[in-house]
Design a protein around this nucleic acid. Structure first.
Length: 631
RNA sequence: GGCUCCGUAGCUCAACUGUAUAGAGCACUGGAUUUCGGCUCCAGCGGUUGCAGGUUAGAAUCCUGCCGGGGUCACCA
């Protein structure tokens, strides 16, 4: 429609305005709700060139296109806005076409390049928390949105299964886990504790011992006892102590933190963990067995959580596999002169030309860091999928710098596809009390939260839901659908890029801009449809404003899907669906459907309702949210 | 401190690539059911879009400065 007007104006501009007008001048926008019209042309841009008032431009164009295009009924000009009213027949025809289109809103499958979406990628030594929920829901939804746009998405994650942090939990388990009467140490089976939670417990355990050992060392130093420590360390401690002289409380706090770091580095425990990492990289059988056993527990625990969350992965990557390739890439880059080696043997890249600084890519002891394995992983993925066009990394915005560097390194290594790598950087989830802090015990556990919202959904549904005649299994499934629907919607409705506030009470609300509100609308329409029976959309029928409003919204769906894909933003879908539902509820409240005696009108309203329900189901599906038939 | 992101109603969030009177939800106040599912709908209340300049016919949006907040600048991941 817009293209048609543009064409018409450009080709007739001599006749209309006595001069050629550039196409760029013709700008459309949506008509305001309180103004009559279906499409609005902005006339301000013409004013300067044509030396006409915005109103006159509007009148001229309005008169002209009304005479040329049959579907245009009338127009009005308000200031610099030309509002065009399109005929009811046109909208009816649109609805008819949409109704017939089974794949409405979606592009043809595999019509666009293959893209990989990485999300989740948790540490294997901590259970999943609220932040991971945003990450998982986001990544999974983006993958579905990309599929809807015709891409072939490969959902993946990188399992952080190696590194010093893993060795910490392993060491702690080996040292501090109690032995039961059967001579076994704690495991998920003999404790009944979920695997990821158990390993997480030992990571915390490590930290406890680690800190107390460091404290002892500081006490020792402060009492003037320095045997067992190198001159460097002693000198550094004394330098830091000296710095405290005459400083305010805040600075002293900072210096004390540095002293603590220094002491931590002297602990036996950390040394042992480091040694374990070296052994692991050398594939020491004993360490390897412990490692694979404990990781197995974690995976088992995570799998349960993913299952309940309703997310899945097509392909997994393990750092324990890719870090070696990363190391090879470092050697390669070293030969090419992209990286350089410091005297202690550590390898770096100098990015000062790019306005960044030097970045470590390999430790002096030859072990890999995060960057090393991320390089390896990326290259590995392109090896595995020859048609892979790009990778979308769903990772929090605290890693903006990391990805900037990673993509730059890949580019410097000569991988042209680095340009198609995109960091889907999302904001942190804050609690009303502030940021989640493990030390302060404010971390919201994913499993607990899900259980809580499902429980709440159960209470609410038992109170006022329509669940008579449902089996127990069906009921349980419904509670999951509503609880998780609310949680997902709550986390996805906000622009991913933005930091957001998680209010536990609000997240289980059922009114207003919430998942259950939308789910309810769907269930209500489905109930209506089943009572109303089949319908045929009439080719002629006068439209009421509520009906036309809905057809226009339905008509917007494909554009919304496209925009959500281009912006990697489920929030665009969520906000659209909410608008649609609000508009439908208004319609439902003010217009009789089944009681309507005029068959055409009844059919039309059923047709609109049916398509609204279909889009709710489809769009919520893109968010990974199920919608029930009854609730 | 350098780099970077953000400041919109009491609170949580919208506002496409600049455009008409900056919109929703929650909260608060008042209404609606001879009706198809009231987890609904309607109305009211609530704003100097952090501040000050600039660009533009037009700025929440673009530019500059300031104020306030987050993130990051690890041989952590």
């Amino acid at each position: 429609m817009e293209a048609q007007i543009k064409e018409l104006l450009v080709s007739n501009s001599q006749e209309l305005f006595g001069q050629q007008i550039p196409e760029g001048l013709i700008q459309f926008q949506k008509t305001r709700k309180d103004v009559e019209g279906d499409l609005t042309l902005v006339t301000f841009p013409f004013v300067k060139m044509l030396k006409m008032s915005p109103q006159d431009v509007g009148e001229t164009i309005g008169r002209f296109i009304i005479s040329k295009i049959d579907d245009f009924n009338s127009y009005n000009v308000i200031g610099g806005f030309l509002n065009i009213v399109i005929s009811d027949d046109y909208w009816l025809n649109i609805l008819l076409q949409i109704d017939r289109n089974d794949n409405y809103g979606f592009s043809a499958k595999n019509s666009k390049p293959t893209l990989m979406v990485e999300y989740s990628s948790p540490n294997t030594n901590k259970p999943l928390h609220l932040g991971h929920l945003r990450n998982n829901f986001l990544g999974y939804s983006v993958a579905r949105i990309l599929d809807a746009n015709g891409h072939n998405s490969i959902k993946t994650q990188i399992i952080n299964d190696r590194g010093i942090h893993i060795c910490k939990s392993m060491l702690a388990w080996e040292r501090f886990s109690p032995i039961n009467e059967n001579g076994e140490r704690e495991n998920p089976l003999n404790t009944g504790v979920k695997g990821d939670k158990l390993v997480g417990k030992y990571y915390v355990e490590f930290d406890k011992h680690f800190n107390s050992e460091a404290k002892e060392i500081i006490t020792q130093w402060e009492s003037g006892s320095f045997e067992d420590y190198t001159d460097d360390v002693i000198a550094e401690f004394q330098r830091l102590e000296g710095l405290k002289e005459g400083k305010d409380e805040k600075s002293i706090k900072g210096i004390n933190a540095k002293i603590k770091d220094l002491a931590k580095n002297q602990t036996q425990l950390l040394n042992d963990a480091k040694e374990m990492l070296l052994k692991w990289e050398a594939r020491d059988p004993e360490v390897y067995l412990l490692w694979s056993t404990m990781n197995g527990w974690v995976y088992e625990g995570f799998a349960q959580t993913y299952e309940r969350m309703g997310v899945e992965f097509d392909q997994l990557y393990y750092e324990s596999d890719t870090f070696i390739l990363g190391k090879e890439l470092v050697l390669e880059g070293l030969e090419k002169g992209i990286f350089f080696k410091k005297t202690d043997g550590s390898v770096w890249i100098d990015l000062s030309d790019e306005g960044l600084d030097e970045k470590l890519v390999l430790r002096s002891d030859g072990t890999a860091v995060y960057m090393t394995q991320d390089m390896g992983t990326a290259v590995d993925r392109y090896k595995d999928y020859s048609d892979l066009d790009g990778i979308i990394y769903t990772v929090g915005n605290e890693q903006d710098y990391h990805f900037k560097v990673l993509f730059l390194i890949l580019k410097k290594l000569g991988y042209h596809w680095a340009e198609n790598c995109y960091h889907l950087s999302y904001g942190m989830v804050d609690l009303p009390t502030g940021r989640m802090k493990s030390r302060e015990g404010t971390v919201v556990d994913a499993d607990d939260l899900i259980t809580e919202v499902v429980q709440k959904a159960k209470e609410m549904t038992q109170e006022r839901g329509h669940i008579e005649g449902m089996s127990d299994d069906e009921r349980e499934e419904l509670y999951e659908t509503i609880g998780l629907g609310g949680l997902k919607y709550y986390l996805l409705k906000v622009d991913p890029k933005k930091r957001m506030m998680f209010n536990p009470e609000e997240s289980i609300e059922l009114n207003g801009n919430t998942g259950p509100f939308i789910q309810y609308a769907h269930a209500r329409i489905r109930s209506l449809i089943s009572k109303g029976g089949a319908y045929i959309i009439p080719s002629k029928c006068e439209l009421q404003s509520e009906e036309k409003e809905l057809i226009k919204l339905i008509f917007d769906y494909p554009i919304v899907v496209k925009e959500a894909g281009l912006g990697y933003s489920p929030a665009i879908i969520a906000n659209y669906t909410y608008e649609l539902v609000k508009s439908y509820n208004h319609f439902y409240q003010s217009i009789t459907i089944l009681g309507e005696e005029d068959l055409d009108k009844r059919n039309l309203r059923l047709g609109i309702s049916s398509n609204v329900a279909r889009i709710i189901k489809s769009s919520m599906g893109l968010l990974g949210i199920k919608v029930p038939e009854r609730m």
